[in-house]
Simulated scan of single mutants.
Amino acid sequence: MLPIGSVVTLVNGSQKLMILNIGQIIKQNEKDVYFDYSAAPYPVGLDTQEQVYYFNRDNVSEVVFQGFQDEDGKHFGDLYEQWIEETKDEIQRGKVKNDTDIF
């Protein structure tokens, strides 16, 4: 898992995105789903009038910059992976519509 603050580009994407959150649960097609990451455009950041971007680790093409991570961040990553395994029958990973149209 990439830490918050990391800047990435997505498969078939050209816009750099800065990761804001990990493991966001949202509604998609009337069901609760989770995405590995939510992000805002870089270098502009979050504009409350704009959409937040949701995607998963397999949608990442390039890590342009890796954000700060310490032992707390690593521990959180371990807990997140454990949560995914424990809840796999209850909540599904969200699906990106396609690589150029992130949620």
Rank of each mutant, 00 (worst) to 15 (best):
V63M: 00
E71F: 13
T48L: 10
A39W: 03
D70L: 02
K74D: 14
S38M: 09
L46M: 12
Y54N: 05
S38Q: 00
F35A: 05
A39Y: 05
V64Q: 09
G73V: 06
T48W: 03
Y34D: 03
V64N: 01
H75V: 06
D58M: 05
D70I: 10
V52K: 05
F68H: 15
D36Y: 01
F35I: 04
Y42K: 09
V60G: 06
N59W: 00
F35Y: 15
V64K: 12
E50I: 01
Y54A: 08
Q69P: 07
P43V: 04
F55I: 02
V52T: 03
D58Q: 12
Y53W: 02
F65G: 03
E50K: 09
Q49G: 11
Q69Y: 08
H75N: 14
G73R: 06
T48A: 01
P41M: 09
D58P: 10
N59E: 15
D36C: 07
V33H: 08
Y53H: 10
Y37D: 00
Q69E: 15
S38H: 00
D70F: 10
H75W: 14
D36T: 08
E71Y: 05
V44I: 12
G45W: 03
Y54L: 14
D58N: 14
G45R: 02
V63P: 11
Q69F: 07
D72F: 13
Y54G: 08
D47W: 03
